[in-house]
Simulated assay, not measured.
Amino acid sequence: MDAVPNPVESSVRAALATVHDPEIGRPITELGMLDSVVVDDAGAVTVRVLLTVAACPLKDKLRTDVTAAASRVEGVTSVAVELGVMSDAQRGELRQTLRGDAPSNEIPFAQPGSRTRVYAVASGKGGVGKSSVTVNLAVALAAKGLSVGVVDADIYGFSVPRMLGVSSKPTQVDNMIMPPSAHGVKVISIGMFTPGNTAVVWRGPMLHRALQQFLADVFWGDLDVLLMDLPPGTGDIAISVAQLIPSAELLVVTTPQLAAREVAERAGSIALQTHQQIVGVVENMSWLDMPDGSRMELFGSGGGQAVADSLAATTGTRVPLLGQIPLDQQVREGGDAGAPVVLAAPGSSAAVALQGVADALAARQTSLVGRSLGLTPAAR
């Protein structure tokens, strides 16, 4: 005669189906992480959860979430959580669950069916605030409920982890890299793999391989938007992005200054050679709001619109000026503290302007360029 299932145990298992692995973002019951649930006659529950790796950086959060979910079940008097570790075979099954039969080196964002919008944030020169713009746009988009990732593709000048406040290291599970996240944004950077503030001294082929690993070996899940913080100029990384993700669109960041404007036009004009679309231009450091309500245009004016107009004429496409970001001390403070200004000071003039750019990007529909529409010719 079959044993009658314990109703409390069934309820606990149902409750644990709401607990998501903090790195993968899917229920632990779907990932093979829930090993066992035992309930005694007094209502004491013991849950055994298998970690993907022993050094899982978020195991304490997982323990807390499992305890909270099980404790809410009626009839449960206490909860004990035991943590084990998956075997190699179980990790292999997990990879199969997440990746299916896709080749290990396949870049999901480059596949014809991808719904992820990829924005490569470019600038002609350094010092225009490209990384600050990237980080704040990512956080603003995530706050809208979108699934967002950031690739810090500025290998030599990586700064995104600090600006996002990410201190944890990625976790590797059976040749997959699980990216850490902050403020709802998943992020990967070469800075997570180098000790201290060590300089990266690589030539072009190594840069290309690193970028390919960031895109193919990292498990991003189902992203709505992927932002790539490119190094300044039109070098190896910009070319690699066009090769690895042909559908990536360029977002050009400049300041009003003439020198910055000229090099920004060169950075954007690479789209002619790579056949990429330019989504728009963001003018940063546009002015400084003065106490009397006036504006001081420290770097001149009109540079962003001039870049947009020049790129529109060069490419023969519409290139809008998506926003003008004023100088704001809170942007710098937020970047240093790992608290982006759109969250730390949402009412500031810079945060409002950045939110406007994020609104424009979030409202865009996924491009149909290069995708099959599933149409067949009608018979005559």
Rank of each mutant, 00 (worst) to 15 (best):
D2L: 12
V4F: 10
N6R: 00
P7A: 00
V8D: 06
E9A: 06
A14C: 04
D21T: 00
P27K: 02
I28T: 07
G32H: 03
V38I: 10
V39S: 01
V39M: 07
D40I: 10
D40P: 05
D40T: 08
D41R: 13
A42Y: 02
T46C: 05
V49M: 12
V49L: 10
T52K: 06
A54H: 04
A55Y: 00
L58V: 10
L62T: 01
A70N: 02
E74Y: 08
G75K: 05
T77Y: 10
S78T: 15
V81M: 09
S87T: 15
G92T: 15
L94P: 14
G100R: 11
D101P: 09
N105T: 12
I107G: 06
A110P: 12
Y119Q: 09
Y119H: 11
K125P: 05
G129M: 08
N136R: 03
L137H: 08
A142T: 00
G145C: 04
V151Q: 05
V151P: 01
D152M: 00
A153T: 02
I155W: 00
G157Q: 00
S159E: 02
K169A: 05
P170N: 06
V173L: 07
S181Y: 09
S181N: 13
G191P: 06
T194P: 04
G196D: 09
G196R: 08
A199F: 01
G204K: 08
A216G: 06
D224K: 13
V225T: 11
L226E: 14
P231S: 11
P231G: 12
G233I: 15
G235A: 15
I237F: 15
A238I: 14
A238D: 11
A248V: 12
E249N: 09
E249C: 10
L250G: 04
L251C: 01
P256R: 00
Q257P: 04
L258A: 04
A259N: 01
A267I: 10
G268K: 01
I270L: 15
H275D: 15
Q276T: 11
N284C: 12
M285R: 05
W287L: 07
R295N: 05
F299K: 02
F299C: 02
G300K: 00
D309P: 03
L311M: 11
L311Y: 13
A312E: 07
A312K: 06
T314E: 11
T314S: 14
L321S: 14
G323W: 14
I325N: 03
P326M: 12
Q330T: 15
V331A: 07
V331I: 15
G334C: 06
P340M: 03
V341H: 00
P346S: 06
G347T: 08
V352S: 03
L354M: 06
L354Y: 00
Q355T: 13
Q355W: 00
D359L: 03
D359E: 13
D359V: 03
A360H: 10
A363E: 12
R364I: 08
T366W: 07
R371I: 10
G374W: 05
G374D: 14
P377W: 12
R380W: 09
